[in-house]
Design a protein around this nucleic acid. Structure first.
Lengths: 348, 348
DNA sequence: CTGTTAGCGCTTTCAA
DNA sequence: TTGAAAGCGCTAACAG
């Protein structure tokens, strides 16, 4: 196997300088090269099966054209997994469109060593998207202070690090208002997780806001706390179903948790939405395939990825950023579990 | 902001040569350096906040220490998404353990331009893992012929490209034999997809083998073809349920498709496993959370990723590969949908 | 419009 | 045990 062709080989065979080769092959704008030369260079490159060496190019240009996507893997937070493919798809798609590659690096939930910052310190990448930031991540604060391009997916209060997030409060309000609009007054809540997580807290806040706006008192006895899993949803729902009188509807702030809640209802031979109406959150791919299909609040997962890349690449390009804090809106997806489709409404 | 420190800076401040700095910081084996010098270099590097430049390192060493993970995104093949997080986790984990980074690059199902081969031609990566190879991918054959390190996830007959795959035949046999062992004789099959896909065909073959081994005739009227989606499963199941006499059990060669089939049963007010027993395939994360929990054949998704990386890195290191074709075993996970847990058995 | 000429920052053989 | 020196292949001022 002969050695790889280099730009020098191409230059020699085409009878031009390496500069010219570089200009032609990179299509450098603002440079005029005779059509004749241009064609010759291109042709020779093809014949020699020339492919520019990425490492050399990075070295010389000082740019890696690569972004790091750091994902805090959370085995418990199953829901995260369900939306990961979409988010990752959004990230890749946007990155490719901007001429960037994506380096994928999951880290464990406990890891706050910030080992991933080496990616940027050692210049493996031009910037980083960090999904699932932690409050106690000192390394993160450090590289941000050093001026490294970083975008968070999810928020970190107390910092001015640019981020992309979902409007959890608005989404929860949407879900709750929908139930209220259907005539429900006795509405329960099962959170997606402990309110130590800001997303969980926000969904609870949205729920509460919607109730209060409608003049329905917020009743703490109707609130239960999920733990990311279907099992936690089943347990929570069992408690709710044992109440007298039973709530007529429930907002479960996570589709995965809702699946468990749904199972609890089925086991008691009750029916959704007749005995109790359901609205979930996330719109995981399977939400429309369970029985009954789940009415839920859709998170624009691919959009999160896309927006994060867009913001990051603009920071890398040192553009002036007008708004480094992006909050994406959610959308209510009405299916059968809330009873709206069937035209059911409950008396107030 | 002052300039980044380079190895030259470290060398000067420590009063040694750059060679020494390189040796110390890389812990080059077989080189003895006085403990004193070593400590000095390390200390200076720390003080100067020195981090070796990855691009320069790649350039000089000729190694990228990065592998490309190419995923053929198939919007229809929802099942793939459900196992993706696990597989990706396996890939990343194994890669990290071997000192490699992972470049993630999804491609569309239709794309047979082989654009991804640029990753290896331009030396962005040292090797590639390709999930979802296509028969008509000429570029793939080309780079393999050129000696580029490539590992497939899934098979491509007619080639000698190393691959990792799942024992689909064995898995399907496992599922079917389980049902037979429970006393079922009239067992239906819903495939996961068209038998144009080798995985689908193999699962059908396994099903058939199990029947024949037990002396049960293979009855084509009991076979239906899924299309990756729950919807296709629901339609297929409806046909099966209308048969007289009804099959007493069904093997659905995909959990996602099985979800739809399950819904069809529920809609007809029939019960699983009492009226009809179910066994699925894949063991997606939600399989244990549906009603009833799905007995299914587990694919070692993380193991696929892990094995692919292991094989690839050995090829990159030019090790002698004893067995470049790896087939991973599946495992039957018994839950409620087959009736075994409840101790139910059907008369022959 | 094209060529000359410096680097980019590191690894690694070879000598000392 | 350490240092000198030669690249790795490309980009990009600058000069012509």
């Amino acid at each position: 196997m002969s050695k790889r062709a280099t730009s020098r080989d191409v230059a020699e065979h085409a009878g031009v300088s390496r500069t010219t080769v570089s200009f032609v092959l990179n299509n450098v704008p603002g440079i005029r090269i005779s059509e004749d030369t241009r064609q010759r260079v291109i042709e020779v490159a093809r014949q020699l099966n020339y492919h520019p060496d990425a490492s050399a190019r990075r070295m010389a240009s000082g740019k890696t054209k690569t972004i790091g996507f750091i994902l805090r893997q959370t085995p418990d937070q199953v829901f995260a997994d369900h939306l990961l493919p979409q988010m990752l798809g959004g990230v890749s798609q946007a990155a490719t469109a901007q001429g960037f590659h994506v380096l994928f690096e999951p880290i464990t939930p406990e890891d706050n060593s910030g080992a991933y910052v080496r990616l940027i310190r050692e210049r493996h990448v031009d910037g980083i998207i960090l999904s699932g930031p932690r409050f106690d991540d000192r390394e993160l604060l450090k590289i941000h202070a050093e001026g490294a391009p970083v975008v968070l997916v999810g928020q970190l209060s107390q910092t001015d690090i640019p981020f992309i997030d979902v409007d959890n409060i608005g989404g929860a309000r949407l879900a709750t208002e929908h139930l209220i609009g259907l005539g429900h007054r006795r509405i329960a809540l099962i959170t997606n997780a402990s309110t130590a997580y800001s997303a969980s807290l926000d969904r609870l806040i949205g729920f509460r806001q919607a109730l209060e706006t409608s003049g329905i008192p917020y009743d703490l006895s109707l609130v239960r706390y999920g733990q990311f899993t279907p099992q936690s949803g089943e347990a929570a729902m069992n408690e709710l179903l044992d109440m007298i009188p039973r709530p007529t509807a429930v907002f479960v702030a996570s589709d995965v948790v809702a699946l468990g809640a749904l199972r609890a209802v089925h086991k008691k031979k009750l029916s959704v939405p007749h005995d109790i109406a359901f609205v979930g959150f996330d719109d995981i791919p399977l939400a429309e395939s369970v029985s009954p299909p789940l009415t839920t609040v859709r998170i624009p997962a691919a959009g999160l990825g896309w927006a994060a890349v867009d913001l990051l690449t603009r920071i890398i390009a040192q553009e002036e950023i007008r708004n480094p804090k992006v909050v994406l809106e959610t959308e209510l997806v009405v299916r059968a579990s809330c009873g709206a489709a069937a035209g059911l409404t409950h008396p107030a």
